[in-house]
Deep mutational scan, measured.
Amino acid sequence: MPVRRGHVAPQNTFLDTIIRKFEGQSRKFIIANARVENCAVIYCNDGFCELCGYSRAEVMQRPCTCDFLHGPRTQRRAAAQIAQALLGAEERKVEIAFYRKDGSCFLCLVDVVPVKNEDGAVIMFILNFEVVMEKDMVGSPAHDTNHRGPPTSWLAPGRAKTFRLKLPALLALTARESSVRSGGAGGAGAPGAVVVDVDLTPAAPSSESLALDEVTAMDNHVAGLGPAEERRALVGPGSPPRSAPGQLPSPRAHSLNPDASGSSCSLARTRSRESCASVRRASSADDIEAMRAGVLPPPPRHASTGAMHPLRSGLLNSTSDSDLVRYRTISKIPQITLNFVDLKGDPFLASPTSDREIIAPKIKERTHNVTEKVTQVLSLGADVLPEYKLQAPRIHRWTILHYSPFKAVWDWLILLLVIYTAVFTPYSAAFLLKETEEGPPATECGYACQPLAVVDLIVDIMFIVDILINFRTTYVNANEEVVSHPGRIAVHYFKGWFLIDMVAAIPFDLLI
């Protein structure tokens, strides 16, 4: 008679799926529990143990900040960024110097990925580790590398530091407007667009060049630039800015003055950032001319202004700041037409079709709590990747769950009947059967004279019903998954307890 339990259901295979997918890609990662103190490590794979030199037993239950890997060259700011990422709910990448158990130093890129439950609360953290440099290539500990984003994938490793954006290309926007319009339909740009040429040739750093990471940081200074100062900065030398009595002219307006920039070969870094931020506020060169004239017309309804409409929906549905990093990277690809469009465009503009998908598509409701890094690593669709929660398995109709209350009560009843059979069957065979043979035949009273025979008949009927119930009862397979398919249940029961239950259900007393 089957006594099969499996009270692990309803099970959740999400954690096993993450481990299996990460292991298949030869990654070095740990999984931490966000619900406990210090976000203790609950799993670390073999790749991480080989990377740091510690065994799994030495890593388990330690804080996922990996303070046991810190050393003299470990930056405090990087460690603080990892700790801050564990307090938030967004994906974050941090470069930090770690030390192995043998004392060797290596520069590592740590990717902190939160995993949320159905309520939107962070319950786990996945920390992925990628070695960037070994100890002989690690720089000085005073050099802070965590304020910069990861290198873009479309640049060669040897040319990542030679990417320079020439400031004269930004200063000569109005001069290039006529050349853009003359391109017409034969050019790649839309009317009114501004073409910015980027020099990728390796050259020595000069005062006129600005690194790509500095251009990325310009967006942080746009908020500090007032509207009046932006307007004066875009007017140009024809209309000098008016300053109040006793007030000095704005240095932001002076930063885009061609006369002032041409007199000296070098520009201050602050002026460069502010000038680029001011130019980015204009949607095209037409807006710059309109600002000089004193009238700013409404933005025209053409394809170039609607190019950012799908980007707005993608940004609203993005799951991490990696989408913004990807957008900034692609927006700086050289030799393309940049349409400086305000994100607050007309909502009635139709979304044009684009061959290049900048932001990841909208994630469906079932995966809105899973970050983009987890979705990318697992390579699963929205119909396959579940949320991290207890999910009731989908069972067929008329199927009994093996952990249901009805099955528990039924098993206790069958257990009592088995005990009765084990006690009274030998007793009936030894004593009652002998008395029946010696006594007179009682054929007239039937079952009324033999109450134990009636009980034995009921017990046999219950055993037959138990066999039928076992054909529709779920079970737990070797992978700790609840199986509810009727065919698989029948095959599993035939290979197991079916023969024993059938022999126990045969009414031998009635056959004798």
Rank of each mutant, 00 (worst) to 15 (best):
V3Q: 15
N12P: 12
N12M: 13
T13S: 08
F14W: 14
L15A: 07
D16Y: 10
I18H: 03
I18P: 01
R20D: 06
R20L: 06
G24P: 03
S26G: 14
R27D: 07
F29C: 01
F29V: 02
I30D: 01
A32W: 01
E37R: 07
N38M: 06
C39F: 07
A40E: 05
Y43C: 01
C44T: 06
N45E: 01
F48N: 01
C49N: 10
C49I: 14
L51G: 01
C52L: 06
S55N: 06
S55F: 01
S55I: 01
R56E: 03
M60Q: 03
M60C: 05
Q61M: 09
R62N: 05
P63K: 11
P63C: 13
C66R: 01
L69G: 01
L69E: 01
P72K: 06
T74C: 01
R76I: 14
A80N: 04
A80I: 14
I82R: 01
Q84W: 07
L86T: 10
E90S: 09
E90C: 08
E91I: 11
F98A: 01
F98L: 09
R100S: 04
D102F: 01
S104T: 14
S104N: 13
C108A: 11
L109C: 05
V110D: 01
V110I: 06
D111H: 14
D111R: 07
V112R: 01
V113S: 14
V113C: 12
V115D: 01
K116R: 13
N117T: 10
D119Q: 15
A121T: 09
V122E: 06
F125R: 06
L127T: 01
L127H: 01
F129V: 01
K135L: 12
D136H: 03
S140M: 15
S140H: 06
P141N: 14
A142P: 13
H143K: 11
P150S: 08
P151R: 12
S153F: 04
A156M: 06
P157H: 09
G158N: 15
R159C: 08
A160W: 15
K161W: 10
L165G: 15
K166P: 05
L167W: 15
P168R: 08
A169I: 01
A169T: 12
L171Q: 15
A172N: 08
A172Q: 07
A172K: 06
L173C: 13
T174S: 14
S178I: 01
V180R: 15
G184E: 06
G189Y: 01
A193N: 15
V198N: 05
V198S: 05
D199Y: 01
P205E: 15
S206Q: 15
S207C: 05
S209F: 04
L210Q: 13
A211T: 13
E214H: 11
V215C: 06
T216Y: 08
A217F: 14
N220S: 05
H221Y: 08
V222D: 05
G224K: 14
L225E: 14
G226L: 10
P227N: 11
A228W: 06
P237R: 08
G238R: 13
G238N: 14
S239D: 14
P240E: 12
R242K: 14
S243F: 05
P245M: 14
Q247V: 15
Q247Y: 14
P251E: 10
R252A: 05
S255N: 10
L256R: 12
L256D: 06
D259K: 15
D259M: 04
D259F: 15
D259A: 07
A260Y: 14
S261P: 13
S261H: 11
G262I: 06
S264F: 06
L267C: 13
L267D: 12
R271V: 05
S275T: 06
C276F: 04
S278I: 14
S278K: 12
S278F: 08
V279K: 15
S284T: 13
D286G: 07
E289I: 06
M291A: 15
R292T: 04
A293C: 12
A293M: 15
G294M: 04
S304E: 09
G306T: 05
H309D: 14
L311H: 07
R312M: 05
R312C: 14
L315Q: 07
L316P: 08
L316G: 11
N317M: 12
S318D: 11
T319C: 05
T319Q: 05
D321T: 05
S322H: 13
L324I: 14
V325F: 11
R326S: 12
T329V: 07
I330G: 10
I333S: 11
P334L: 01
I336Y: 14
N339K: 12
K344R: 05
G345L: 06
D346N: 04
D346A: 07
F348R: 14
L349D: 07
S351L: 05
S351P: 08
T353Y: 05
D355T: 14
E357G: 05
I358N: 14
N369I: 11
T371V: 15
K373M: 12
Q376E: 11
Q376I: 01
V377E: 03
V377Y: 03
L378Q: 04
S379I: 03
G381W: 11
A382Y: 04
V384T: 14
